[in-house]
Amino acid sequence: MSNDQEERFYLLLDMTSLDRLAKESETKHSRWDNIKRRKIRMGAYEAGFLMSLYPQYSLWIGTGAVSPEIGQTSPAYDEANLKLPEPKTGSR
């Protein structure tokens, strides 16, 4: 795993509560806490679990790229998209 890819996983960790991680995975709260604090390394199971929580970010996690036309974005892309003005609809 590259450093950039690792940082992308940690960004997703920061977006997700420890309670949710522990409740929905087979990993204990204390292990997630240690991973989040970077005391221990994330294992393949935890990385895969994060990808299952955020399937829309799979391409971005793996490559750093986004492809919104196929539903593959990133947290930054989604945040920027939320800030765009809504298109005006209706008649004049």
Rank of each mutant, 00 (worst) to 15 (best):
A47K: 12
K88P: 00
T16G: 11
G71H: 12
R92G: 07
R41Q: 15
Y10D: 10
E26F: 02
S74V: 02
M42T: 09
T89K: 06
L21C: 11
R8F: 12
E69I: 14
L59D: 03
D19M: 13
S30M: 06
L50F: 03
S74K: 04
F49Y: 08
N3K: 14
D4L: 14
G90L: 01
S74I: 05
F49K: 02
E7K: 15
P68R: 04
H29W: 08
T73Y: 11
G90S: 06
K88A: 07
M51V: 10
L11D: 10
M42A: 14
K88V: 14
A76M: 07
L59P: 01
A76E: 15
K39W: 09
R31C: 00
G48L: 00
M15V: 00
E7R: 12
F9H: 06
A65P: 00
L50V: 05
K88Y: 08
L50N: 02
A76D: 10
I61R: 01
S91G: 02
R41G: 13
K36Y: 09
L12R: 00
Y45H: 07
S52N: 05
R31H: 03
K83S: 09
F49M: 03
L59M: 09
L18D: 13
K83Q: 12
R38A: 14
Y77C: 04
L11E: 11
I61K: 02
E69Q: 15
A44I: 12
R20G: 03
D19F: 05
K28D: 05
W60P: 04
P68L: 10
N34K: 14
T89N: 09
P85M: 04
S25I: 03
I35S: 05
R92V: 06
E6P: 05
F49P: 00
P85D: 12
I40K: 15
G71K: 11
G48M: 03
L53M: 13
I40P: 15
A80Y: 10
F9V: 08
E46H: 05
L53G: 09
K23I: 07
Q56L: 01
T16A: 10
P87G: 03
W32Y: 04
D14Q: 12
P85R: 09
Q56R: 09
G71L: 14
P75W: 06
M15W: 03
D78N: 13
Y45M: 04
L13P: 04
L13A: 08
T16V: 12
A65R: 11
P55D: 11
Y57C: 05
H29T: 12
L59W: 04
E26Y: 00
S30V: 08
T63I: 05
S58H: 13
Y10F: 14
